[in-house]
Design a protein around this nucleic acid. Structure first.
Lengths: 201, 201
DNA sequence: CAAACAACGTACCGATCGGTTACATGACCC
DNA sequence: GGGTCATGTAACCGATCGGTACGTTGTTTG
């Protein structure tokens, strides 16, 4: 994830989840919707329907909980990217193009608030475990895009990847400040143009 | 401003500034460097070297102070944009290109942390005076870019402006998550490419 | 059946949050 | 000198912050 709105925690009647899982669900939803610093642990445990010690038994501290939420959300990003890649076997250019069109589309959904990791980095500008986790994902994201640019046959994979990253982060933030009908809707086309310029076609 | 690092409050020995001005200076520096929610009023008045009542006499509340800081910072953005426009009279395309190259260059300076208004919108996702102020600037920014795109002779000024906004917000955020040698350095070239695609040349 | 253990919630902790009050001080102006 | 205005000091407010001591419950295990 890291750029989709968390699905509402499902009722735990079918699979009686542990208190820690409920905390993680609640924290993910609340952090994404309201921002990390704006959400207190009290509110998290209330929404999760558990006691405060359950949070601290499972995660040790609010910071550790934040990191755990970010780690879970990172998986979502890779899932969606891998999905696009799998949809166009042997054609990383088509995969990446599809991914950007999909990202623009996803940004229209209500409650969308961009990339949780980027938001976290903005909320935690000073050195901290949260920032380390957020920046770590961003580095892996950049590496992966660079690899894909190389696989596309770009002369300068890093340059192409970085140009696409500008668009990607642009989606995340413009959606938040300009709404669902803002610049983010041009992202697919813009990404295609930047790819075409460095690859031809 | 809104994307340059605040200059350190100058010593008030020459022009004995009012307490409210010192508060505004300190708040601008602290908010930009550490984030808004991370800074308490106590720290602000300490750095400003004034008493807490001075803050509340001048601004009424922390929220009002935040709004005042954002309003001051907005002026900086218009100054820099107007400067680029003035440097290329009658050539909005050259002006905008220069602006993007300049923005990429500025993003390298230490302490750069992107656009204060975008950051504020991330920190305040729920309706509030702060968010209203931040989003108001972002709307004016988009309108101005659209006007310039129209002046360039773009067939679809809104489309070009929005593509450039993706790059612009991309600069702001990628600098924060990827550092001064990250994707932001490709912004000038990317902006030129997107402009050329819609204008020819 | 009972001891042991894991999981959990109630109630509380000190610290800090944004904001306020009362008052002393000093510069300026007539 | 007396008044006004802007300021700083310091103590304080209720609310909320992240975090914990401790007792209760429910299940397992002998």
């Amino acid at each position: 994830m890291s750029d989709t709105v968390p699905i509402a925690p499902k009722p735990d009647e079918i699979a009686p989840r542990r208190a820690g899982d409920k905390v993680l669900d609640a924290a993910e939803t609340l952090f994404y919707a309201q921002g990390i610093r704006a959400v207190g642990v009290e509110e998290i445990v209330n929404v999760a329907g558990v006691g405060k010690p359950s949070l601290y038994r499972a995660f040790g501290s609010k910071d550790d909980l934040i990191v755990a939420v970010l780690q879970r959300q990172e998986g979502g990003f890779w899932s969606r990217l891998d999905e696009a890649v799998a949809a166009y076997p042997g054609d990383p250019r088509a995969a990446l193009t599809a991914y950007f069109h999909g990202a623009a589309e996803r940004s229209k959904q209500p409650g969308y608030r961009g990339c949780a990791h980027s938001n976290a980095a903005v909320e935690y500008p000073e050195e901290s475990a949260v920032r380390v986790e957020a920046l770590g994902f961003k580095r892996r994201q950049r590496e992966r895009l660079t690899d894909m640019a190389a696989a596309m046959g770009a002369d300068d994979p890093q340059a192409l990847a970085d140009e696409l990253l500008l668009i990607l982060e642009g989606i995340y933030v413009t959606r938040q400040v300009h709404g669902p009908d803002g610049p983010a809707q041009r992202a697919g086309e813009a990404a295609e143009a930047l790819i075409a310029r460095r690859l031809g076609g």
